[in-house]
């Protein structure tokens, strides 16, 4: 039913494009390579996280630059429960997400009680993420810098065990798609609920919202809780998809920036922006890798030259150009040109 609401936002042209897009996604494993499937799985995973991040900034005006923290604590929790106590992720997801939400509440409580706003709040989220990263570095119980690994056998990779999240790449692909769709529909429902309107009022003018009798503290807390909860679910997925967790690659500031990039590029505050952003940036990064490989293998560039940085150099340039020339994001611009949706966010 939530899905039907989503369709109601779209014009006929938008619905047709969405259906074509869905048809491509669903049929993808049947006609593409395992490489494309893995790239698309990561893209969908980042679309979920983009949605979670967008919920805080785009809906409620709270800039988080430490979002990897919520993903990471949940991933570590679920992986630890599974690998040490043998608790399947279907159950483990509850304590894992609860931990992410609790940490979100702690940061929110401290930030909002002491009225730390804007840039300072963003820096508070970075500080917590870095603090936890260094703590996990030193926690031998969950692997420390050596990392935490999940056992996976060749038989597992062929299976379809949703309870233990052990299975074929196709299983993870469709699971990521389902989660991305549920997140999108859930965020749409939230945005159009009373809660969503409170958030937007707080985002646009906190003092005015307070003057109208909105309990600003409480609703900002709700925003952080929903957002960290979604990030926590994504974290469980990540742990069982990757089967290995390292503090640096899970909690690092690069991860938090990566999470925020999709929605910013796609369009902050819109529902389809984070999805579009993920589908632009991840394939762009992968495409650039292929491109630099091609340049070297075809002999256009001396293969002995090390091109480690070239991909990210171009990638940074593209992001900078988007900020400079499409500061509202790609989705609002595309939408205006092609008329996909009825006026969104109104």
């Amino acid at each position: 039913m939530m899905g039907l609401n989503l369709l109601a936002d779209l014009t006929l042209r938008g619905r047709i494009c969405l259906l074509i897009f869905l048809a491509i996604l669903i049929s993808l494993p049947f006609w593409s390579s395992s490489y494309i499937i893995s790239v698309t799985t990561i893209t969908l995973y980042l679309a979920i996280l983009g949605q979670s991040w967008n919920l805080m900034l785009g809906f409620a005006g709270l800039l988080s630059l430490g979002h990897a923290l919520f993903v990471g604590v949940s991933a570590y929790m679920a992986a630890y429960l599974f690998s040490v106590l043998g608790l399947p992720p279907v159950i483990g997801i509850f304590p894992a997400v609860a931990l992410a939400v609790l940490i979100g509440m702690l940061i929110g409580y401290l930030g909002f009680r002491f009225s730390i706003g804007g840039v300072y709040f963003a820096l508070l989220t970075i500080a917590f993420a870095e603090l936890v990263r260094i703590m996990v570095d030193h926690m031998g119980l969950i692997g420390g810098t050596e990392g935490l690994f999940l056992q996976v056998t060749e038989a597992d990779r062929q299976g379809f065990d949703l309870i233990n999240l052990r299975g074929h790449p196709w299983m993870f692909y469709y699971l990521a798609m389902l989660l991305a769709f549920l997140t999108l529909a859930g965020c749409r429902t939230l945005l159009k609920s009373k809660l969503g309107y409170y958030w937007q009022a707080i985002r646009d003018d906190q003092d005015a919202a307070q003057a109208l009798g909105i309990n600003v503290f409480r609703y900002k807390m709700y925003a952080v809780m929903y957002s960290s909860g979604i990030a926590g679910v994504a974290g469980v997925f990540y742990a069982f998809y990757q089967n290995s967790l390292f503090p640096e690659s899970v909690f690092g500031i690069e991860r938090s920036i990566e999470i925020s990039l999709g929605p910013i590029v796609g369009g902050v505050g819109s529902l389809f922006g984070p999805v579009l952003g993920a589908f632009i940036l991840t394939p762009l990064g992968e495409g650039l890798t292929e491109f630099t490989d091609y340049l070297q293998s075809s002999g256009l560039i001396d293969p002995k030259l090390k091109l480690n940085g070239l991909k990210l150099l171009i990638w940074g340039l593209v992001v900078a150009l988007i900020v400079l020339f499409k500061p509202a994001g790609i989705w609002p611009w595309l939408n205006e040109k092609l008329g996909f949706s009825r006026k969104e966010g109104e």
Partner: peptide, 18 residues
């Protein structure tokens, strides 16, 4: 703020990789 942050973060990525 977040757009300025993104521009400078993109610049940072470019400098590191250059």
């Amino acid at each position: 703020d977040h757009m300025q942050f993104l521009l400078l973060a993109a610049l940072a990525v470019m400098i590191v990789n250059a």
